[in-house]
């Protein structure tokens, strides 16, 4: 598991760089380095489907974020109530860590998962669905409604993007047409 420690260290360094870097383009590229490290961690943790999906999603995210940030570099404003802001932030992080320390006792030990449902899928998955890739069997057969909901969410988000990026509303387009006539 040594490679996992190295990957996690790289991901934490990349995340700190992404948050603290002054240049927006460098920050976006750092967060994508975190994502690629996550993809390799999935591969080490024996989840190849996740690794491929994460790789593709990461590259798409990088392209979209670069489209948003390129040629829009801004000087950072450091004025304002930074003491209050930092205190509130640290307070919320401490609350989160308190909740985490309670949850850590309930989590199963690393490497020994609770596999109550997973055992059934591993035992009967091939006989019931005929798929050799059991993750695909769960996604497309046992939990097909999850997949349907996922596609619905994607569809709604693309409609939202089209609505946000639309240059002129329907009313103003109708008015301009009326002016032409």
């Amino acid at each position: 598991m040594n490679e996992l420690y190295i990957l996690f260290g790289l991901m934490i360094i990349g995340a700190i760089a992404a948050i603290e870097m002054e240049d927006l383009l460098s920050s976006v590229i750092s967060v994508s380095a975190v994502g690629l490290g996550l993809s390799m961690a999935f591969l080490v943790l024996k989840a190849p489907d996740m690794a491929f999906t994460q790789l593709i999603v990461e590259i798409l995210c990088l392209i979209i974020l670069i489209r948003a940030t390129i040629k829009k570099d801004l000087p950072f404003s450091t004025s304002g109530r930074w003491i209050l802001n930092t205190t509130i932030t640290i307070f919320f992080i401490v609350v989160f860590l308190g909740a985490v320390s309670l949850a850590l006792m309930e989590l199963p030990e690393f490497g020994h998962p609770l596999m109550k449902v997973g055992e059934i899928y591993l035992r009967d998955g091939f006989a019931q669905t005929g798929a050799t890739n059991l993750v695909a069997a769960i996604l497309q057969d046992y939990r097909a409604y999850d997949r349907l909901g996922e596609v619905a969410v994607l569809f709604v988000s693309f409609i939202g993007v089209l609505a946000i990026l639309r240059r002129e509303g329907r009313v103003s387009a109708a008015e301009s047409k009326k002016d032409l006539i």
Binding site: Y121, A137, L139, R147, E150, L154
Partner: peptide, 17 residues
Amino acid sequence: DPLPQAVVLTTIVIGLA
């Protein structure tokens, strides 16, 4: 365990959206 993998595959795509 294949179940968390299947759940996370959905989560990654929704995160992209």
